[in-house]
Design a protein around this nucleic acid. Structure first.
Lengths: 253, 253
DNA sequence: AAAATAGTGTCTATAAGACATTATGGT
DNA sequence: ACCATAATGTCTTATAGACACTATTTT
């Protein structure tokens, strides 16, 4: 009877680990040197850590680590992110698995890749951990030309494709923006992630077109007066916030 | 020097396996009894196999099996699908990982779930394997009310959400249709997967609207004359085929 | 006044959306 | 003649797309 419950596959070769890798994107904003008020220069960056141990000692890599028996891979990603960079309370999203034989010199490792978009200020809390010599942001274009550990080059490429698609089809732009923002900031964030994006009448589409009307809404103060900001420009710009509405896209309607 | 290369994590607990599960959807078409020509009744179905061994002996489950060290999880899914059901040359797509502790009584198993959409006739080649007492199609609504092995209920629910989304945002409808099809068939396939889908002027949108114009094209015979079919109706309907064009959707443009 | 960003007016072509109407050919 | 499905006509309103123009406030 007990023999019936013997799991025959247990005598097979089993994986040597189920690691997670986390691709953290952020958009940095840097004020331009000209004394005048103007939109800051924005750049898409990602977070890497320098490996202190074999394999790929001294090489930059994505944060991540090994899943434990008592947690899901998503919980592992949250935990490792906290341990290695000090970042917590971030919405991370699973996007792919990497299982090519030989991808990890330590053995048979099937890695689960997550991505997260965080506001720049959250990264100020980052710290070097005992496992990493250093933690740093790199511009995405620079990271793609660096030597990276494992197949992290592929993982970053896939993550980038994914957020480009999501930037245009969902409201993830909000992950990069403050609660209240101007149309100019929103436009700039979209273009930072998707450089090819260009819409001549952007302000009209996003505010007055029927199907998109609900995505963002004007911010008003306690008295009900429209709230604006002249942080980036001489003329004050109307502030907006995202609503909870997520438009449903379709190629057939 | 050699000690430096010792993988310290190798002394940790490692997973007991990296299985794959494959959700195969098909749409069956059944002619209506009325002698007259009319559109067939279509139904979304999925393929399950009955387990012959512990755990969940005698319970219906998704096809799948254990990944080997020499293959990727995607290759495993293709191989297991072939072994258990006889289906090959199908485009399968990875969609999620299932890693909740305790999800598999055999031990710590992190499962990788794939989905595939196949034309009904491909399933005619299916066969019972040595591991499965039986292989059968079930209507999705019926499968969701059955007792299923492991967390396959969750996997199917997620797969269903995924194909509903993809049915409206990509051209996967082609996976369910013959090379040449009528607008009526296309409409019916979309509605079979997404019952809520309804478009009054469907034929016009899909054929004459600028942005969608390139998705499908009219089929012509050798002489260049428009080709039509009266398979489902008295009046012959124009035949169409999908092009290679995949529209890029955006909430901002 | 110049600069920099915000926002509106106006025009044309195209698309959406609703419905009624016509077309075709087998039973 | 009737039926089921295919396809078009017609009308109103909404959106796309282009581009010139006006608005606001700091330097």
């Amino acid at each position: 009877m007990e023999n019936e419950h013997t799991y025959s596959a247990s005598s097979y070769r089993t994986p040597d680990g189920a690691p997670t890798d986390i691709v953290i994107f952020t958009i940095t904003a840097q004020d331009r040197e000209s004394g005048k008020k103007s939109l800051p220069l924005r750049e898409l960056q990602l977070l890497l850590i320098e490996r202190k141990i074999w394999p790929f000692q001294g090489v930059w890599a994505l944060p991540g680590g090994f899943t434990q028996e008592t947690e899901t891979v998503a919980e592992c990603a949250q935990r490792e992110l906290k341990e290695e960079t000090g970042i917590s309370d971030v919405r991370i999203e699973y996007f792919n698995v990497y299982s090519a034989p030989g991808r990890d010199p330590r053995g048979w490792m099937i890695s689960h890749a997550f991505l997260a978009l965080v506001k720049e200020d959250l990264l100020r809390e980052r710290k070097a951990s005992i496992d990493a010599a250093d933690v740093r942001l790199f511009p995405v274009s620079e990271a793609m030309n660096m030597k990276l550990a494992f197949d992290h080059h592929d993982i970053i490429r896939d993550a980038l494709d994914k957020i480009r698609e999501k930037m245009l089809t969902t409201t993830i732009a909000k992950e990069f923006l403050p609660e209240e923002f101007t149309i100019g900031e929103l436009y700039q964030v979209i273009q930072t992630v998707v450089p090819a994006f260009e819409e001549k009448n952007f302000i009209r589409k996003v505010t007055s077109t029927q199907i998109r009307k609900g995505i963002i809404e004007e911010v008003r103060d306690e008295a009900g007066k429209l709230k604006s900001s002249n942080k980036y420009s001489q003329r004050a710009a109307q502030l907006y916030r995202f609503t909870d509405y997520e438009p449903q896209l379709s190629i057939y309607s």
